[in-house]
């Protein structure tokens, strides 16, 4: 039951690829319009002009900009991300080290948010207008309005500083004394994850709720819900089985869009919790003008977003029988 034509898919893939190329070009220009360069941090005042030239040569800064650009685009096509001048290591290595950490932190908050959010949204949407809806909805908006680092500070203050229950930094015990088994490592990560997870999820779930609530509300007026009710099914069954299933479709899209915002959260939250992931990496790279790292970090995120958006289209068609892509093309 493929509802997507091969041609349509192919077209979407090509467009997505081109989008990525344009994003990369844009970034190349933007990053280089920032004043300063990583080279400043490598030049020693006692260096002669020749020595500075040599360093510039090594990092390819003497080439005309267009040639640097062409080289950069070609390298990326072949998966060569270059070397980082500040970390003096291959950029790809750096990415492989950092990306999983961000994925663990934000993957788990993502899961929590997208379980709690739609559930609450379902409930509120179904009972829209009730007093419960009003009070829960407005308090969740209050949560949504909190600066993430501020609420994180409050949690650290409470659970770490005051109660001493949870650690406020890192993903692992730095120098573990316990035996290194799958179980102990899991437990250790969860222990360290607790506080950041709590802080991010505290705000994060609202996003999903905000999509689910109106969507749920819309389907209450649909014929099949009416029909299900008429059949004498319990309110609960109708809500869960018939209404919620259909109301979830926009949430799925929202989830993908939400992915794009993960990195925003990461930038701040990773800093608060000394969680050395992509968010910290990208900010430091921009601030220290480490172009190879900044480019690669932006690229990885952009690629993730573009691919996920492509993927949403596919998910969409499977979830919603009314949407058909590729017809009439």
């Amino acid at each position: 039951m493929t509802r997507i034509s091969g041609r349509y898919l192919a077209k979407r893939i090509v467009v997505s690829y081109l989008t990525l190329l344009v994003i990369m070009s844009l970034l190349f220009v933007l990053l280089r319009s920032m004043p300063g360069s990583f080279i400043t941090s490598m030049i020693n005042p006692q260096m002669t002009r020749e020595q500075i030239e040599r360093i510039r040569e090594t990092w390819g800064l003497n080439e005309p900009l267009w040639r640097q650009y062409v080289q950069f685009m070609i390298n990326y096509q072949t998966g060569d991300f270059g070397r980082s001048p500040t970390y003096s290591t291959a950029v790809s290595e750096l990415m492989l080290r950092r990306l999983p950490r961000t994925l663990i932190l934000f993957g788990s908050t993502f899961i929590v948010g997208y379980i709690v959010g739609p559930l609450v949204g379902m409930y509120l949407g179904w009972w829209r207008g009730s007093n419960k809806d009003k009070s829960i909805f407005s308090s969740s908006l209050l949560m949504y309005s909190m600066p993430s680092f501020w609420i994180a500070w409050l949690f650290i203050w409470l659970f770490n500083y005051h109660l001493g229950w949870l650690p406020s930094s890192y993903m692992f015990t730095q120098f573990p004394e316990f035996e290194w088994t799958a179980f102990t490592v899991m437990r250790d990560v969860l222990y360290h994850l607790a506080l950041p997870l709590l802080s991010v999820s505290f705000i994060g779930w609202v996003g999903a709720m905000l999509i689910m609530r109106p969507s749920m509300n819309n389907v209450t007026e649909e014929g099949y819900v009416f029909l299900a009710r008429a059949k004498g099914l319990s309110e609960r069954t109708v809500m869960l089985k018939h209404a919620a299933r259909n109301a979830l479709i926009p949430v799925a899209t929202g989830a993908i869009v939400g992915l794009a915002f993960i990195i925003d959260g990461a930038v701040v939250i990773e800093n608060v919790f000394s969680w050395p992931g992509m968010g910290q990496l990208i900010v430091n790279a921009v601030l220290s003008r480490d172009f190879p790292v900044a480019q690669a970090a932006f690229f990885v995120i952009a690629a993730l977003i573009v691919v996920m958006r492509l993927f949403t289209d596919v998910v969409y068609t499977y979830l919603d029988p009314r949407i058909k892509f590729g017809e009439g093309e």
């Binding site: 467009v15 997505s16 989008t19 990525l20 344009v22 994003i23 844009l26 970034l27 933007l30 990053l31 319009s33 920032m34 004043p35 869009v257 794009a260 915002f261 990195i263 925003d264 930038v267 701040v268 990208i282 900010v283 921009v286 601030l287 900044a294 970090a297 932006f298 995120i301 952009a302 977003i305 573009v306 958006r309």
Partner: peptide
């Protein structure tokens, strides 16, 4: 829409940091 797609590919906060830096 393609332009929107492109902008969507740029993560908000890091991109903002670049703009502010420029």
């Amino acid at each position: 829409q393609r332009f929107v797609d492109i902008m969507y590919g740029l993560p908000f906060l890091p991109f903002l940091i670049v703009l502010v830096a420029i």
